[in-house]
Design a protein around this nucleic acid. Structure first.
Length: 125
DNA sequence: GCTATGACAAGGA
DNA sequence: CTCCTTGCCATAG
């Protein structure tokens, strides 16, 4: 396992119940700003040890294709936690997005400058 | 070391 | 809003 993989799993486990994040956001926090695709790939492999259903794409849509853990299952998991999901698998991501505190970001072995950039990016919109 | 493969993202049609 | 294209980058083979 690489450091990147460890980070992704660690971060995913930090997502609070009832909140969601985008793949790109996880990648950003893991230190690879454009590693969104890898995040999806990793969650597919380690889905049994992470709350993978709290990670969706930035368009607010569920995009899993996995037969073992399909979109309908993810929809039910989220609704059970209080997250509204439409029949078209749409989610108001900005309303449920998890905005990690500076303390949490600091524990991810990231330098302060990087942490600052992340927070600045998510404080917008 | 090189190519193929995505549970993505963003911008254009 | 929905499709399509291009850019991305860690893994697998």
């Amino acid at each position: 396992m690489s450091a990147f993989t460890d980070k992704v799993i660690e971060i995913t486990n930090l997502i609070p119940k009832g909140k969601v994040v985008s793949y790109g956001q996880v990648a950003l926090m893991a230190g690879v700003p454009r590693g969104a695709r890898q995040v999806g790939w990793i969650l597919h492999q380690f889905g049994d040890e992470t709350p993978w259903w709290r990670v969706i794409n930035n368009a607010g849509r569920i995009s899993t294709k996995c037969l073992e853990h399909d979109a309908n299952m993810q929809k039910e998991f989220l609704e059970k936690e209080g997250v509204q999901v439409t029949k078209r698998l749409n989610i108001d991501i900005e309303n449920y997005r998890w905005r990690p505190s500076h303390e949490i970001l600091g524990k991810l072995a990231l330098d302060d400058q990087y942490v600052f950039e992340i927070q600045e990016k998510f404080s917008l919109s």
